[in-house]
Amino acid sequence: MIIRGKELAEKVINQINQDLTLLLKNGIESKIVIITLGPESVWKSYVDQKLKLAEKLKIKAEHINLSHTSEEILLNLLEKLNQDKKTHGIIVQRPLPININKEKIIKAINPQKDIDGFRPDSKFELPIFLAIEDILKKAKTFDKQKIDFILWLRSKNITVVGKGETGGKPIIEKLSKLGINPAVADSKTKHISELLEKADIIISATGKEGIIRKDNIKKGAILIGIGMHRGGDGKLKGDFDEKEIESIASFYTPTPGGVGPLNLAYLFKNLTEAAQFNQISS
């Protein structure tokens, strides 16, 4: 069965619209600032999606492109935005150039404005994990086991494929905090098929094809694809061939329209919560 994050995202979007209405009644216009560095080809598609949703929601969005800049200039800008009461959410779009210390940049963002949820003391949950959580909760509704969601997760063999800083790594860390220790596979993992064949849930964040196939997943597995790449035809493709695995997986997400729209919706839900927090603390 296919689980479309785009459909699940509608509920979150409705909540955002309710938040925005209340904020506007109190004279607050939510604002997000997106900072980009490096060549446009690295960040354009991701930023365009954010700007498009901001426009749809009538949220004020500012895109600051620093192109090739120094760490000092970026840190100075972040300090200015931290102090700006009209800015509620700050995003420094990844990946960052090699001359920029990403840990220092994360720590430089006010935790009350870190809507990406990267800081350990951030006020917000990781949007990507909230998206995965919703998808798994949807899958659980079809399970005959009437147990708590976290207990249900702990009862499953989970494998995360890929350890990237915006995909696999934060998901692994979040699962660990919930008392779940997933099997982890990356490009250096030998006998990766053995891990996949045992997995009840596979969360793939590689952006590569051919790793997850119909012959190395078990019947009834749940497949969640985060990674994307462009095929030879120029179209976005996921980490697995949907037609190939649809008769084997019990649930799977499509690409596009799977995790992405839900991830984006939760990012903006974090933004409206940041604006609400700002309202209370002002």
Rank of each mutant, 00 (worst) to 15 (best):
I132G: 06
N216H: 01
G238F: 15
N216S: 07
T141D: 06
I211L: 13
L136H: 06
N110I: 10
E194S: 14
L74F: 00
H191Q: 13
A185K: 06
I211C: 03
K60E: 12
I224L: 13
E246K: 15
D19N: 13
K214L: 03
K190E: 14
K219F: 03
I100C: 05
A199C: 04
K11Y: 00
V160D: 00
K146E: 04
K219D: 11
L196Q: 03
K174Q: 06
V47T: 08
L24P: 00
N99A: 02
S67E: 08
S250L: 10
Y252N: 03
P95N: 00
I2T: 14
S193E: 14
T253W: 01
L271R: 12
G238W: 12
P120E: 13
P170F: 02
K52N: 10
E103Y: 14
I203G: 09
N263C: 13
A139E: 08
I106W: 07
L130Q: 08
L96N: 12
I192A: 00
K174H: 10
L262W: 04
L96C: 04
K140F: 00
E165M: 10
K25W: 14
A139W: 08
L78F: 02
L24I: 09
I59C: 09
I16V: 10
I35S: 01
D84K: 03
T272P: 05
P39D: 08
L74A: 12
G207V: 06
G168N: 10
S176G: 05
I109Q: 08
M228S: 10
S193N: 15
L151K: 12
Q93T: 05
P182M: 05
L195A: 10
S30N: 05
S41M: 02
I212V: 06
I91F: 09
K190D: 12
V92R: 04
E79Q: 11
L37N: 07
P95Y: 05
I100Y: 13
P127I: 09
I35M: 01
N99L: 02
N263S: 14
L20Y: 02
R230E: 12
I201Y: 01
H63R: 02
A205W: 01
I3L: 09
K174W: 07
D19S: 14
I59Q: 10
T69S: 15
G231T: 06
M1D: 03
D215I: 12
H229G: 06
R154D: 02
K237P: 00
L51N: 13
K52V: 11
T253E: 04
I212A: 06
G38C: 03
G258T: 01
T69N: 11
I16C: 13
F240R: 09
P170K: 01
K60V: 00
Y252M: 14
I32R: 00
K269Q: 13
I64F: 04
E165N: 14
E165R: 15
I115V: 15
F251Q: 07
S176D: 01
D116L: 14
K237V: 13
K6M: 07
T69Y: 00
G231W: 06
I128K: 02
N101P: 12
G89C: 11
N270M: 05
I106S: 03
N26V: 13
Q279I: 02
R154W: 00
K177M: 11
L196W: 07
P97G: 02
N278P: 04
I192M: 08
Q49L: 15
E62N: 14
I202L: 05
I172P: 04
S187R: 08
L178W: 12
K123E: 08
L264T: 14
L77V: 08
K137Y: 01
K104I: 09
S41C: 04
